[in-house]
Amino acid sequence: MSKEPGYQLDYLDQLESEAIHILREVAGQFERPALLFSGGKDSITLVHLALKAFRPGKFPFPLVHIDTGHNFPEALSFRDQLTAQIGETLIVRSVADTIRSRQLTEPGGKFASRNALQTFTLLDTIEEFGFDACIGGARRDEEKARAKERIFSIRDEFGGWDPKRQRPEIWNTYNGRIRKGENVRVFPISNWTELDIWNYIRRENIALPSIYFAHEREVIDFEGQWVAVSPFIRLDASDNVERRRVRYRTVGDMTCTAAVESAASGIDDIIREITATRTSERGETRIDDRVSEAAMEDRKKNGYF
């Protein structure tokens, strides 16, 4: 083994290279891949990595957005702006349409989240376009079921994940061969943490929707979490609507994402806050994960991302 100093790659460069390698394996192995784009920082990072992986060529896949109808308007306009700017194809499929066509029952309650219904639209979209691989921005540090999932995750024809039958995934050799009906979910940024994403966004100067930065907003206090007032949540007489300076740590639906109180107006401030925080990303911002210890595992078994 030879030793030449100076040829050591920084950890962010290693993570970047790993992600680009995975994206190119998708391009090399699949007929009809797609990149699932939510408008959040993780999928925006994926798009940035795809630019590095495939430019000056076009992406070998479209961007696909499963629109719950409960999105932050800022995230939607950012989505349209970004896809126009990079000149790639965007496919949008709407959960509201699926609810109508499949006669699904809308969830009820104070925060009527369509999060679980997304799976129906996703599976319909996979079938409509014949997607054999869907790239997503899930990270293993987010949640402990995700910590167990392979980078190439084989799903059955119902989109279901069987954690007991995962294929061995050895070295950097990804086996994307599937039988008819099966499809693969691919997670290029599996090994990135929340902080890695933010450090990378800072280093690469990646643009984000404005809601990631501190802004004033009407919110209510729900069990210690700040939830934005929107047409999608039910206000009760006991709710006290306040104006607070907040930012979002994750961007999901307005019904299931909570804001954190913050004065962080730039990336450096955000990184400082995240480094100091004692609460995890999902714990602080997701109303939907507190349901049960195995909430994510159960959703994945049912075809969720």
Partner: peptide, 24 residues
């Protein structure tokens, strides 16, 4: 319990599959 992420693992108190964890 921090690393045993699957329901079956917690039930049986064993590790079945690899879990990835991160720190710096």
């Amino acid at each position: 319990l921090l690393t045993d992420g699957l329901r079956a693992e917690r039930e049986q108190g064993i590790t079945i599959d690899v879990a990835y964890k991160y720190f710096s």
